[in-house]
């Protein structure tokens, strides 16, 4: 796994994802701020602000979701962690989780392809600034594809980790945050 994790493409991808998240965050705050400045200082209406924001927001949301998959920080119920204590059963539960996620995302990837195929046929554009709709629709498909990539990665990381579930869980041992 270390080999993959240290792979230049793998790391470059993470860098790109981080860059997208940072840039879109700054843009989102910036666009909203500029809207206020235009209204009160320049006495102008920021025409099509919502449309630009939509594109920015979609990339922000989905790349946040992708990175969440890589980190394993998606929101979960997590009720069995106190039931299964042995490293072996913890490992099995984790593998089941990753496998279920894999299947679900796979189906969504297929639906995502059909969705993009349908929308690309029409060259739809937004009503105000005539921004191609595909620009804000694309991140949905890209999102699921990359989330699938990290789910596979995490599955094997757990599978190959001989020490999985041992001597961790800092919360129970009073570790620090």
């Amino acid at each position: 796994m270390d080999k993959i994790q240290n792979n230049i493409i793998f790391r470059a991808l993470l860098k790109v994802e981080s860059a997208v998240m940072i840039i879109t965050s700054i843009l989102a705050a910036g666009i909203v701020f500029v809207g206020v400045v235009m209204r009160y200082i320049l006495q102008m209406n920021f025409f099509g602000q919502e449309e630009v924001l939509c594109v920015v927001a979609m990339w922000l949301y989905w790349f946040g979701g992708i990175y969440g998959s890589y980190e394993g920080s998606h929101i979960k119920g997590d009720m069995l962690s106190s039931v299964f204590k042995s490293p072996r059963s913890k490992k099995i539960v984790e593998l089941v989780i990753q496998a279920v996620s894999f299947v679900v995302i796979l189906v969504f990837c297929i639906w995502g392809f059909e969705y993009m195929a349908f929308n690309l046929r029409f060259n739809a554009v937004t009503t105000g600034l005539k921004i191609p709709m595909s620009l804000s629709q694309m991140p949905l498909l890209v999102g699921f594809l990359l989330m699938e990539l990290y789910t596979v990665f995490n599955f094997f990381r757990v599978l190959l980790d001989k020490d999985f579930g041992k001597a961790k869980e800092p919360a129970e041992e009073g570790g620090s945050e």
């Binding site: 981080s18 998240m21 940072i22 879109t24 965050s25 700054i26 922000l60 949301y61 989905w62 790349f63 946040g64 979701g65 992708i66 990175y67 969440g68 980190e71 920080s73 998606h74 929101i75 999102g143 989330m147």
Partner: peptide, 17 residues
């Protein structure tokens, strides 16, 4: 930058969900 990135992940997992 890191603050923005962490916030983006927090947002992303909410929105995707």
């Amino acid at each position: 930058g890191r603050t923005f990135k962490e916030s983006a992940v927090t947002t992303g997992v909410i929105m995707v969900m």
